[in-house]
């Protein structure tokens, strides 16, 4: 079957029931997509399929035939959101980070804090309590930090 992966047309011959995450990690060596639960609950394996965030651990590869799949590797380290995740310490252990960034990419141009929370509701992070992630995403979109994503005080 054929599909577009990070802008390039790829053809593979695998069992059509193979999970998309296994194809990405094992056939193409794209290990930036992480597996946290294998049941679509944690979002660590989030990739974009035709621009929509999807858990690649519960998608059989046959479902992406002719579709466009985008993974964290496509950003190539140069995306402003990646830099902001570093600057704001939106990544602590880092295992949820690629999925979190991919999910955030689906946000519109001027998201509110509530929009950000809703867009990331399917992505679990156990380290940050999410606040630093909100700060990274809101700054990326040039939005003001609302209460709940505001600045710390050192007295």
């Amino acid at each position: 079957m054929k599909f577009t992966l990070n802008g390039e047309t790829r053809e593979i011959a695998v069992n059509p029931a193979t999970r998309l995450i296994d194809v990405l990690r094992e056939e193409f060596g794209l290990t930036g997509t992480k597996e946290g639960c294998g049941e679509g609950e944690c979002g660590a394996c989030t990739v974009l399929i035709d621009g929509e965030p999807v858990c690649s651990c519960i998608i059989p590869v046959s479902q992406v035939a002719s579709a466009e799949v985008t993974t964290i590797e496509w950003l190539n380290g140069g995306h402003p959101l990646q830099k902001l995740f570093m600057d704001e310490v939106g990544a602590q252990c880092g295992i949820c980070t690629p999925g979190m960034i991919m999910a955030a990419l689906s946000l519109g141009p001027a998201p509110t804090l509530d929009d950000v929370r809703t867009a990331l509701a399917g992505n679990l992070c156990r380290c940050t309590g999410y606040a630093a992630i909100y700060r990274a995403v809101l700054k990326w979109r040039g939005m003001p930090l609302e209460d709940g994503a505001g600045g710390a005080v050192v007295a």
Binding site: R25, T31, G32, T33, K34, E35, T71, I72, E73, L75, N76, G77, Q82, K83, F85, M86, D87, V89, A91, C93, G94, I95, T97, P98, I101
Partner: peptide, 18 residues
């Protein structure tokens, strides 16, 4: 800047399963 920030933000950092 975090010493390990870039690896984590790009997915390049290698965890055991990688």
């Amino acid at each position: 800047a975090r010493k390990d920030g870039i690896g984590k933000a790009t997915g390049g950092a290698k965890y055991a399963d990688d």
